[in-house]
Write a protein that binds this DNA or RNA. Sequence first.
DNA 1: CTGAAAGCGCTTACAG
DNA 2: CTGAAAGCGCTTACAG
Lengths: 332, 332
Amino acid sequence: MTATDVARRAGVSQSAVSLVMSGKAGGRVAEITADRIRAAASTLGYQPNAAARALRSGTSSRLGLAVLDASHPFYGLVLSAADEAARNAGLSLSMIQTRGHEGLWEQRLAEEFSSGFLAGGIVFGERLTPDSTLRAWADRLVFVEVPEPGFRSILLDTAQSMAAVVDHLVGLGHREIGYFAADYPSAVFARRFEHCVAAVSRLPDVALRSEPTWRATFDVETATATARLLLDSGVGAFVCDDDLLALALHRTAAERGRQVPGELSIVGFGDLDVARLVHPQLTTVRLPADEIARTAVQVLADMWSAPPLPAGLTLAAPLVIRGSTGPAATAR
Amino acid sequence: MTATDVARRAGVSQSAVSLVMSGKAGGRVAEITADRIRAAASTLGYQPNAAARALRSGTSSRLGLAVLDASHPFYGLVLSAADEAARNAGLSLSMIQTRGHEGLWEQRLAEEFSSGFLAGGIVFGERLTPDSTLRAWADRLVFVEVPEPGFRSILLDTAQSMAAVVDHLVGLGHREIGYFAADYPSAVFARRFEHCVAAVSRLPDVALRSEPTWRATFDVETATATARLLLDSGVGAFVCDDDLLALALHRTAAERGRQVPGELSIVGFGDLDVARLVHPQLTTVRLPADEIARTAVQVLADMWSAPPLPAGLTLAAPLVIRGSTGPAATAR
DNA sequence: CTGAAAGCGCTTACAG
DNA sequence: CTGAAAGCGCTTACAG
């Protein structure tokens, strides 16, 4: 089933079929002829061959989305939102997971660009290696959450978020704040911690406590083991790099009969659905997955259809106050 | 950067480059020549054009994975596991979300087959429409969780799982079991409910209660609203179509001060990470995302390299007993 | 407004 | 063992 088959059936040339099917017929094919072609294509169930189109034109209508870890619920939200945004823009979406593809995902993405598979790409929370082949496609890439010099980026105002988190806890009377860190090398978490340090250092009489052992991967067992250390520390308020870590702490506290928020305040990062599926519900920083995804898709879509947006955009990540934070025990 | 460039640099023909790069040179190209070609390709950073390859050969090394809803954590696990399994088999993976693409995902998948983009496809929890264009690719597709006549399938033994769930609850003294249903038209949930009905009907003196209003989408607000109805019913044990529904019930019970498992037993479906991030941890049926994904990838990989596996495989989905189920209040 | 033709970068018989 | 050549199904100047 090729354009030639459709052309034969409609009694026209293959070129005419191509023009009509690709929507570039405007004024170049008589409307009545175009109708005949569309009817024939529909009858035969014709679908243009994407490989041939990509090879010949070097373009496609597909976006690539690179995420750290497809199994983390946050990226599920991103993926779903990006899929919808892409569909609305007449594009389709292809995901690539970078974790487990270290040193390979850039090459694979580059290969898909040079093959004409991808029109653009969105990279979440990753940096490029110094001599990455991807650097040749700077005009088709958007980086999210971690800025990459020379590329467009969409950042989150986590400085602001952390200031709100710290102010909230201090307002509740907490003077010592612990930090529960994610044990991954990603720059995303490094930035969160730095911003928390900065937010605390604005205030006199407030201390941020972090220990080398106060870090965990998102694996439940590991996170739970670390959570026990945090509980033993006696610190009354914790900021966590991720909702999953916050929930591990939340659960371990419940298991030990430590009241949340009476004896322990917990703040997460992400605002996953599960942040509202525990009691008390989790106070957390909302990372706007849908807004990020929509914006990233739009930045790419605009690259070839409208004046470019500014190279760097920063989105707000607001603090959502729920039940897991409360007055410091000493303040009551 | 094409094969011709590499050929020029290595002083050979473009055909020789193609043979070497595609690994089909065995005995047809002198080893010393092949080395020269690989060196030249490496120096130039050559990567074969996938679109040209797909167009010419009609084959690729990419699998398509269709899931209902990329934002549900379960599919994150599936995606991540399938990605790893595909990588180990020398394949890559492309995801498509069916929710939001109703009536379109089949067409898109078919288009990718006919374009030579996809070597095979895995379809999760979906049925084909009667005259789907995908039916032409029966030999490249595997259906998961919902059988599709004429296609290979990987099923879960949910009949067995539900029997274990019901026996567990009955063993704890529960004689009335409520069913918290997922409000989606998918055959997946219809099967779970049927199997639960069958499991209960084996036993005298045990009743399954389900009401038209006892159903919810996975949206936290909706699930919570329904959970309140369930709590009002006075039923002491609930089987839920999904962990997310179970957690909504779990949380709502905690909010109202209803003891779990003292006054209410809850069983989920899925065994997501979050099932262990609440207190008490959730008793649930473990859906083996990793095993499913590995098996599906292997079935497809074997299609073109080994004797085919039996057309239908059934994997166990074991009950994992944790803290959210306990003796019936009346039994104590 | 319409069609014949070149060519995208590969793979793969085929001839040497 | 090596290379010249056809052809996958499109897009896109180009000629009419």
